[in-house]
Design a binder for these strands. Sequence first.
DNA 1: AACGAATCCAACCGCTCCTCC
DNA 2: AGGAGGAGCGGTTGGATTCGT
Length: 306
Amino acid sequence: MGRSPISHEVAVGSVKKGPWTPEEDQKLVEYVEKHGRGSWQRIPALAGLNRCGKSCRLRWTNYLRPDIKRGEFTDDEEKRIVHLHSLLGNKWSSIAAELPGRTDNEIKNYWNTHLKKKLLRMGIDPVTHRPAPANLGLLSGLLSPAAAAGNLGDALKIQVDLAHLLKLQLVQSLLHVLTAGAATPNVDLLQSLTPPPNPLARSSDLLLQSSTSTLVPNLSTLSQFLSPDASMEISSTSSFPAAAAAPPPPPLVSPCSGAHNSEITKPSSDHSDWEDLKLDDIDSDCWKDIIDQMPPWYEEILESSL
DNA sequence: AACGAATCCAACCGCTCCTCC
DNA sequence: AGGAGGAGCGGTTGGATTCGT
């Protein structure tokens, strides 16, 4: 287990590398408990260890510290990590500071091995916490085949679906700004708009909860507010404002919806998290606050789609 | 049962930041 | 002001383990 570049027992120079033995652990624990941490550079000699100070520090902070919490990450911890990562990025030590008993290394490993993949499966880019860019290709491919085949009816139907989908994406991106990608005041704003089912839940949890199991139904709920006959003018020659100062969010297609994008536009009545959002009252103060923080092209799209 | 692929995670490396002189 | 040394951080590695065929 662990990295062992040369040999478990062979030292480089006079300093041993590789996995720690129980005896070494015991020596380090006994020394730190008796004398405190002090200088990591001096600890190896004082504790009778043939290790560099850096290795001792790492072993202590990541494994031997008495306050380390072991075992599986809880759902709450997962959500907090995702939330904090959306705010802080790869600042593992800062994230670890918010999760008592968890080390930065452990969180980093858990992110890379579990959470990153989980988000990708949900169609969310784990770096930006926005819908994954890979979905762009899927959507861009929707228009051309039918049009190329000369089937105008199919092409128009796909255009309507795509327009509707893009509008959902717009709302999704608005919500993203409010939750994952925005400053705390916006989080508070969202909470004031939509009290979460669980009063203790963080605002970003709303998005995560919807993403983990019921992303599509929640988006579907949002779609109720977007009348299909108010679809944007979308054609193969129209351009999403990609050249604008800020890049547009890639269209959202949940992985579980596959290529059948029309499925996600079906309204659902059993998810009421967002029902208090007055999407048809875009002039309300709440929405003004939100829109004020969006790039200019968002406003253009909103005006044309609502 | 055997084998290769995929995954996990402890530990290392190189760099930056901070403190002290 | 700036150089040195130590601490801490994020990225990467690679052996151990688990999974799939």
